[in-house]
Structure formats: structure tokens, C-alpha cells
């Protein structure tokens, strides 16, 4: 299990339930490495501002890592983490390697409309 303060997706059932019960889902699939940790931290910080988005992480090498690894949108990816944005269960964006808070925010705002009022 990843040592982050995000909610983890640990089973395939969990993965399906998360996509089914949330309109907007961002999943960062990685390891506890230097390119992944900054993305987990950004997600953790944004959780409070985007309460209409479910922020989750998933172990790249874990038993269900293939659910993200084998997505067609990640076919050309060769840098951890693989971060995938879902809307109504469908992939709307995917990024590879480290991302800044601004890059993540830009995608969240573009794909999941306005930030929820605080």
C-alpha cells in the first residue's frame, strides 16, 4: 500500500465502485518515488478545494496496477506516475511523469468544470 494520505484503490471491485459512484475521479498510479510523491502531495492539497472530485491513488506494481497500466490512453507512457482523469467512468485525460500543481489544476478545471465553492 502506498504511504500517502490519499484514499487508496486496492481491489478491482474498489476501482469499479469508485468509478460508478463518482462522476469525477482522478487516479494517480505510481510508486513512492521522486516523480510520484509530488503528484500525491498536490492531490492531497487540492482535495479540500475540489470536493466534487474523488482523488485516489493506486500501486503501479500492485495486483490491480494493470487496470491503469494497460489503458489505451497510457500506451505511450514510460514515466511514472500514470495519472488518469475519469468522467462518468470514461477516461477524459491522462498524463505521464511528474506534474505541477498548476498542471493538475488546469486539467481539473477544464474537465470537471468550476471548482466547488468553498
Amino acid at each position: 500500500m502506498l504511504q500517502t494520505s490519499l484514499k487508496h484503490i486496492l481491489t478491482e471491485q474498489d476501482f469499479q465502485d469508485t468509478l460508478r459512484s463518482n462522476e469525477n475521479v482522478m487516479i494517480c498510479c505510481g510508486r513512492m518515488g521522486p516523480m510520484c510523491i509530488p503528484v500525491y502531495e498536490v492531490m492531497d492539497e487540492l482535495q479540500g478545494d475540489y470536493d466534487h472530485v474523488a482523488f485516489r491513488d493506486m500501486e503501479f506494481d500492485g495486483p490491480i496496477g494493470h487496470l491503469i497500466r494497460t489503458l489505451p490512453e497510457c500506451k505511450s507512457f514510460r514515466g511514472l506516475p500514470f495519472t488518469v482523469y475519469f468522467k462518468n467512468g470514461k477516461v477524459v485525460r491522462a498524463t505521464t511523469s511528474i506534474q505541477t500543481k498548476d498542471q493538475v489544476t488546469e486539467i481539473l478545471d477544464a474537465e470537471y468544470a468550476a471548482r466547488a465553492a468553498k
Binding site: 510508486r31 518515488g33 521522486p34 516523480m35 510520484c36 505511450s76 507512457f77 514510460r78 514515466g79 511514472l80 498524463t95 505521464t96 511523469s97 511528474i98
Partner: peptide
């Protein structure tokens, strides 16, 4: 970047 270019061997080495 992340599609063949990397700055971290321990992170991305196994893709190669």
C-alpha cells in the same frame, strides 16, 4: 518527457 525521456533511473528504468 515521460514518453521516452526521463530524469530518474530508479523511477523509470524498468520501462526500458
Amino acid at each position: 518527457k515521460g514518453k521516452g525521456i526521463s530524469y530518474c533511473a530508479t523511477c523509470d528504468g524498468d520501462f526500458f
